[in-house]
Simulated assay, not measured.
Amino acid sequence: MANLLNHPEVIKKAKNEIDTHVGSDRLVEESDMSKLPYIQCIVYETLRLHPAAPIWSPHLSSEDCIVGKYNLPKDTIVLVNAWAAHMDPKMWSDPTHFNPERFENENEVNRLLSFGLGRRACPGSNLAQRTVGLSIALLLQCFEWKRIGK
């Protein structure tokens, strides 16, 4: 919510999406979330800026490999810094800025590391993202939000 309060234009766009696709005569439901892609963009951007696990749990390389310019022998402990990857200006334009629109291109979602990757990715990531998206939509639908002070 702090990101949203600091970007009232994002709140306005999200509320407009809710009003257009759900209306004001009923509350947003989980089945509505597929019609609210901008809300999902807000979730993705929040996870990019504030990953729940900024540094993944240690992994061991299963065989000799090269990562970037580094040779990693088998059984090397590898730590992935998801936060640093999400702040890398080589991967993201203006990485410190809250910009949900960057995820309007579906390909950008594949660069998120918030829940891990591959077979060791968090099995609850879809549930977590849907729950957070629905919560944001309900908070925006039910309340008027504005900053006080600077």
Rank of each mutant, 00 (worst) to 15 (best):
L72G: 03
P123S: 07
N105P: 05
E30R: 12
L79D: 08
A14M: 02
T76H: 07
L134W: 04
T46C: 06
P51R: 10
S62C: 13
S93H: 11
E106V: 12
L60I: 05
M33G: 06
V10G: 03
T96H: 09
D64A: 15
H59M: 12
T20P: 06
I136H: 02
A82C: 03
L112R: 02
L4I: 05
R26C: 01
N16A: 13
K90P: 00
T76I: 10
H97L: 14
P51A: 03
I11V: 10
P37T: 08
V132S: 07
I55V: 12
L60D: 13
K150M: 12
N107M: 12
N71H: 14
M91K: 15
N107S: 15
I136P: 00
S24D: 14
C65P: 01
P37Y: 13
Y44E: 07
L36F: 11
Y70G: 00
N126Y: 11
N71C: 05
W145G: 00
P100E: 01
S62R: 14
V67G: 01
C142D: 00
P100V: 02
E63I: 12
K12C: 03
P95E: 02
F115I: 00
L47Q: 10
L27D: 13
H7R: 08
I18Y: 08
G118I: 04
L47T: 01
L117Q: 11
F103R: 02
I11N: 07
L139V: 09
E144N: 15
P95A: 07
H86C: 09
S114G: 06
L49Q: 07
P51L: 02
L117A: 14
A53S: 08
I148W: 07
K13H: 11
E29H: 10
L49Y: 02
G133F: 02
P8I: 08
R120K: 06
I148R: 06
D64F: 03
S135R: 05
K13S: 03
L60H: 14
S61W: 03
V67P: 06
D94P: 00
R111I: 03
H86L: 07
T46V: 06
P51Q: 04
F143Q: 01
L5N: 05
W145D: 06
I18F: 05
V43H: 04
D64E: 12
H7S: 11
S125V: 09
K12I: 03
R120N: 14
A53Y: 05
H7V: 00
G116L: 08
L117M: 10
T76Q: 12
I136N: 00
N81L: 04
A52N: 01
K15L: 09
V132F: 14
L113C: 09
K146F: 06
I66E: 13
C41A: 13
H97F: 14
V22M: 04
S61Y: 08
V80S: 08
L113N: 05
A53I: 15
S62F: 12
R26M: 01
L60A: 15
L49S: 09
L27K: 10
L127D: 00
R111F: 14
L27P: 02
L49R: 09
